[in-house]
């Protein structure tokens, strides 16, 4: 059954349509991506989910209407949003502290996860002392320890250099196989979407609508070589074609 379901969600800012008609669903333990060009309103969708903005249409969580506070979601923003003045350990406990858990208890809950996230030994460091990849891992750790029902990842690797990004995608895929988080990822990186997702929703340019839903049939663990890689490349090419040459007979032109 689907954990999150959106039916005909729309959003306009002052007469400007941003989201035209979004219907999608995310199943339990499923990794779903929303892929679309920059400025298509992908982040607006997350604002609706976290309750920062309100739109039209139905948003259901486990079959019930989603409450405004979006308490079901742990949100990871585009840049790592680590607080420079907090040590890494205290950055990762932030969500727990906001939930009202005492600092000591929160630390005890987070500390054992540092090794798995490749951050062991850096608990007492400040964010500025860490590399981009480590900061992103710390940000993900801060997100997952909140133990919400679902992860919302807003272009989490967009600010990283290409090599670090690839390394982080492989790492995230591996982490996901262990934990099977229900996750919704926003990205404009076709490769990233194919590599990480079970399903991909392809978004049109603004006003955003879903132009295609694509199942990614590739076996896990995802590999970068062999047959699976060829299949992945073919899928990437197909998706790029959908995004860059929108079929005028099928979709609508909004230029």
């Amino acid at each position: 059954m689907s954990r999150l379901e959106l039916r005909h969600v729309r959003k306009a800012f002052g007469g400007l349509d941003v989201l035209a008609d979004i219907s999608l669903s995310v199943g339990v333990g499923e990794f779903v991506s929303i892929l679309g060009p920059s400025g298509a309103g992908k982040s607006t969708l997350f604002q609706l989910l976290t309750g920062a903005e309100h739109g039209e249409g139905e948003m259901l969580f486990d079959g019930a209407p989603l409450d405004d506070h979006g308490r079901h979601f742990a949100f990871m923003p585009q840049r790592d949003a680590l607080m420079p003045w907090r040590r890494i350990l205290d950055n990762t406990t932030l969500g727990l502290e906001v939930q009202g858990i005492r600092r000591k208890a929160a630390r005890a809950r987070v500390a054992p996860l540092f090794a798995e996230f490749g951050l062991a030994g850096f608990e007492r460091h400040f964010p500025a002392q860490l590399s981009g990849g480590m900061r992103q891992r710390a940000a993900l750790l801060r997100t997952v320890v909140q133990e919400r029902d679902m992860l919302l990842l807003d272009e989490p690797f967009g600010a990283l250099d290409a090599l670090t990004r690839t390394a982080m995608q492989r790492w995230l895929e591996q982490m996901w196989r262990h934990h099977r988080w229900t996750a919704l990822l926003i990205t404009h990186d076709v490769r990233e979407a194919v590599f990480l997702s079970d399903r991909i929703y392809v978004l049109s340019a603004r006003p955003a609508r879903i132009v295609r839903e694509i199942k990614v049939p590739l076996p896990r663990p995802r590999s970068l070589g062999g047959d699976a890689a060829r299949q992945a490349s073919a899928l990437e090419a197909e998706i790029l074609d959908i995004i860059l040459n929108p079929n005028p007979s099928k979709g609508h032109d909004h230029d």
Binding site: A74, M76, R79, V98, Q99
Partner: peptide, 17 residues
């Protein structure tokens, strides 16, 4: 940083927090 504010709101923090 705007994203820190957005993240804290998503965590359920109020204005004072």
């Amino acid at each position: 940083e705007a994203e820190i504010g957005q993240m804290l709101r998503a965590m359920g923090a109020g204005r004072w927090r």
